[in-house]
Design a protein around this nucleic acid. Structure first.
Length: 839
RNA sequence: GCCGAAGUGGCGGAAUUGGCAGACGCGUUAGGUUCAGGACCUAAUGUCCGCAAGGAUGUCGGGGUUCGAAUCCCCGCUUCGGCACCA
């Protein structure tokens, strides 16, 4: 056999041009055949892609091409998440305008994507920084503003000093900026928010409908939304008509309240202390605590601190006077900003009470009361279940049962009500940066914040801007941008100079692909309703909360606006694992980036694709091994050489139907394995996306074909048996080429031609296997004695149990091993094994 | 602390209604081919004992269920991810 290396660069270019020219991936949205919307998360144009990024696009391409062969009309679009900080930071550093920088990067990355042979409908390309895209991002803002889902408020927000902008909660990880790892600070600023917290329950409920999502992502979103059930209880302020409500998940502990904690930001504090002896110390405490960052305030290790206000509230159930404190562990953003403190049954309250010598009152005792709790002996709060004590009419009831009863009691007496709280906060969407979609709002002294009329969209980003990181948007300094007239009253007014979080851009792009060139609307409802939800979404786990939660939210808003008829954007989600190099995630700063261009140059795109798929199951992280690439390259060359050496025969030997009656033992076995392989590959793709094992199965088949073809080499195919043998070889090679086509499309197109067919292999239906051919006539069975393998027997697969047993007893090795011992039990697993239990 | 995932040769990984552990590939070793290198071909390759035939042992550790456990149950350990002063 020849050992040439195939000319991948010529072949790959040729077929990439062919697919582009023949419009393999161009899809007419009017088409009503079986549709399949396959979507990969669109990239941020950072400049270059590494092999780790490649995994995402390669997986998406495998799915698209497989579905095409299965007869689906596949929509596979791509675009660019093109607004964002890196381009602007580059502008500050180098003076190159972000739009130039971004366009250059897009050009480079597009070449990379094409070189991988990943197929897209480029006619649908969207770029989020282009006015014809961000016009509609602004339109979406207006729609939310109309429905009061976009609003401005002053709040303590996360400020990244390095990025010189505010960040959403989701973009702060362990008190660090998700982008640049700088420690964020708390600042009181007036900012724009989207009311995502109004959708908390729906976002939670609909997770249950997402059967095609990884459990892990659903758990993460559930945690992030953080629902807790409980009650809101009204405490009267002593000496006032005022009520201070507080939220609790443990209304069963209401009789154990011994103090109340207010968040330092609580608006009532000032009036509580005004003119009293407590005014100065409490104010000082409040000011000091408010300077701390969120993490200093809220981490578990932080020492609890507080100060007495001098005032009391009244516990509604027993009229006890409850001292009112301000403490650093009460958060204004959660619940009502006031905590009813039960030191006996809450660890935080317990620590606080110990520190300030506040009373501890037990209201729940462990059941089986041999070990009754006593306050003076407690070293930590008792947070387990038990039986109510010191709780008047509720005494003796198990606390879990008491909860609804106590809430009913509150509701009857007007003391409080059922209540649910969520951890999810509203989405902070304004950014003090240039390179984003301007928020379409105009401030007028007379009319307030006025939305830009739809007809005036887009609010264009001015081109000539000075780039400096100074903590307010560079747009502030552009007079002709800022100064405008009020759309309502016509008097002089100023534009909003903040831009939108880029996650707003990416929260709706999957809709725009369906009408990327439509100048009259963001998307066409009818078309979108036909093609969405997305059948398969593929992307990184890092978006488990951010992008995927925001997109679900925006989809629900559109649903409410009756713009779309579906509630969830992505029916199936696949999160691929990271490619690791030298034990770490690839990054420029670590210098462990593997450049795909070098791999493609040396071995070709198909090799890179094959290795990326073969390296590990796609959902798992995998270590990139440069040596491993060569194995994939060898395999493709082996396949190439085994087909091309018979090229003449494929032309000359008539391609007659295979005659089963002419099968020899070898041909029958090969025919059987052809069918086994089709089955295995199909099931691996369909059921579990186990591309690595699918490819391994094809490798096994090729190994078998290589052995088989050795016997046919140099033969002339003249008699009937000969021709039949050759056509089995032909069938096996054609099958290999077909089932490999989604993985390594270029070489398969070329080999399909060499096998004597017209292009394209993607117009060929996915092969179907013959179930009957898979059944073997003979099987090898393992013979065990006491669970240890002692012999193996080849027997007819339909052998009777009696025949099998007598064959076992005649086996020389078994006779030796039995050594006269007594057989107590015989276990027979048909077609697999026989186990003799002996003593 | 709570929730979740994972742990198998020198390496990536395979095997799940419980039934031959290590498919496939990398690496390594030996041989062939080659002026040479690479490439290619053939064979071997978990560990230990043995010239061999063969035997023992082996899937993070310890128990258990079973004729039989990588797989099921219990108790631990390690790694990774999420949440974490959210009342």
């Amino acid at each position: 056999m020849s050992n040439k290396e195939y000319n991948f660069s010529e072949i790959e270019k040729k077929w990439q041009d062919f697919w582009e020219g023949s419009g393999l991936f161009r899809v007419n949205e009017e088409c009503d055949r079986d549709k399949f919307y396959c979507l990969v998360m669109f990239p941020y144009p950072s400049g270059t892609l590494h092999v780790g990024h490649g995994r995402n696009y390669i997986i998406g391409d495998v799915v698209s091409r497989y579905k095409i062969m299965k007869g689906f009309r596949v929509l596979s679009p791509i675009g660019w998440d093109a607004f964002g900080l890196p381009a602007e930071n580059a502008a500050i550093a180098s003076g190159i305008h972000p739009s130039i920088h971004t366009k250059n990067n897009i050009k480079k990355m597009k070449v990379q994507l094409e070189r991988w042979g990943v197929g897209y409908d480029w006619d649908r390309e969207v770029t989020s920084c282009e006015p014809d895209y961000y016009k509609w991002t602004q339109w979406i803002f207006l729609k939310l503003f109309e429905r009061n889902l976009a609003y401005k408020k002053k709040a303590a927000v996360n400020w990244c000093p390095s990025c010189a902008t505010v960040l959403a909660n989701e973009q702060v990880v362990d008190d660090l900026c998700e982008r640049c790892d700088t420690r964020v600070k708390q600042r009181d600023l007036e900012q724009w928010f989207f009311r995502i917290s109004d959708f908390a329950q729906r976002l939670l409920d609909d997770l249950e409908t997402l059967d095609g999502w990884p459990e892990k992502v659903k758990v993460m979103q559930t945690n992030w939304i953080g629902r807790s059930e409980g009650a809101k209880i009204n405490f009267k302020l002593e000496g006032s008509e005022k009520i201070i409500p507080c939220f609790t998940t443990r209304p069963d502990t209401i009789f154990g309240v011994t103090f109340m904690s207010l968040a330092p930001e609580h608006p009532i504090i000032n009036e509580l202390i005004k003119g009293t002896d407590h005014e100065n110390p409490v104010s000082e405490f409040v000011d000091r605590v408010r300077c701390q960052s969120a993490i200093e305030r809220t981490s578990e290790g932080t020492v609890k601190e507080g100060i007495f206000t001098g005032r009391y509230v009244i516990n509604p159930v027993n009229s006890e006077r409850v001292p009112l404190w301000v403490s650093n562990y009460a958060l204004m953003e959660y619940g009502t900003g006031a905590v009813m403190a039960v030191p006996a049954h809450d660890q935080r309250d317990f620590e606080f009470a110990c520190k300030y010598k506040l009373p501890i009152k037990i209201v729940i005792q462990p059941s089986g009361n041999d070990t009754a709790l006593r306050p003076e002996e407690m070293s930590e709060a008792y947070v387990e279940d038990g039986v109510q004590v010191n709780s008047c009419q509720f005494d003796g009831i198990p606390n879990r049962e008491a909860i609804p009863k106590i809430i009913d009691f509150f509701e009857e007496k007007g003391m409080g009500e059922r209540n649910i709280n969520y951890r999810l906060r509203d989405w902070l969407i304004s950014r003090q940066r240039y390179w984003g979609a301007p928020i379409p709002i105009i401030y007028c002294d007379r009319c307030g914040a006025v939305p830009v009329p739809e007809d005036d969209l887009p609010v264009l980003l001015p081109e000539n801007v000075e780039f400096k990181p100074h903590g307010h948007s560079p747009l502030n300094d552009v007079e002709e941008f800022v100064n405008t007239t009020c759309p309502k009253c016509g008097s002089g007014a100023r534009r909003e100079t903040d831009t939108m979080d880029t996650f707003v851009d990416s929260s709706w792009y999957y809709l725009r692909y369906l009408s990327s060139k439509d100048n009259a609307q963001a998307f066409d409802s009818e078309t979108v309703n036909k093609w969405l939800p997305v059948d398969q979404y593929i992307g990184g786990i890092e978006h488990a909360i951010l992008h995927l939660l925001y997109s679900r939210f925006i989809t629900k808003v559109f649903f409410d606006l009756k713009l779309i008829n579906f509630n969830e954007p992505f029916r199936n989600l696949f999160t691929q694992g990271m490619i690791i190099k030298d034990g770490a995630k690839m990054s420029k700063s670590k210098g462990n980036v593997v450049n795909p261009d070098l791999i493609t140059e040396k071995y070709g795109a198909d090799t890179q694709r094959l290795y990326t798929l073969f390296i590990a199951p796609p959902q798992r992280d995998a270590e990139w091994n440069d040596r491993g690439v060569i194995g994939s390259y060898r395999f493709l060359n082996r396949l190439w050489n085994n087909i091309t050496e018979f090229e003449e025969h494929f032309k000359n030997v008539p391609d007659t139907e295979i005659q089963h009656s002419l099968f020899s033992k070898e041909t029958k076995e090969l025919y059987r394995h052809i069918n086994i392989t089709i089955k295995k590959v199909t099931e691996d793709i369909e059921k579990s996306w186990s591309f690595n094992t699918a490819i391994a199965a094809v490798m096994e088949l090729l190994n078998m074909v290589v052995d088989f073809s050795a016997g046919l080499r140099d033969k002339e195919f003249k008699d009937e048996v000969n021709i039949n043998d050759f056509n089995i070889l032909r069938l096996s090679l054609e099958t290999i080429v077909k089932v490999l086509a989604p993985f390594v499309p270029h070489i398969c197109e070329e080999l399909w031609k060499i096998l004597g067919h017209n292009p394209s292999i993607f117009s060929v239906p996915w092969p179907i296997y013959d179930e009957d051919a898979i059944a073997a006539e003979q099987v090898e069975m393992v013979i065990q004695i006491n669970g240890k393998v002692r012999s193996k027997l080849v027997v007819p697969s339909e052998i009777s149990e009696d025949d099998l047993k007598s064959r076992v007893m005649e086996d020389q090795k078994i006779i030796e091993n039995l050594d006269g011992k007594k057989i107590i039990k015989t276990i027979v697993v048909p077609k697999k094994l026989v186990n003799l239990v002996v003593r």
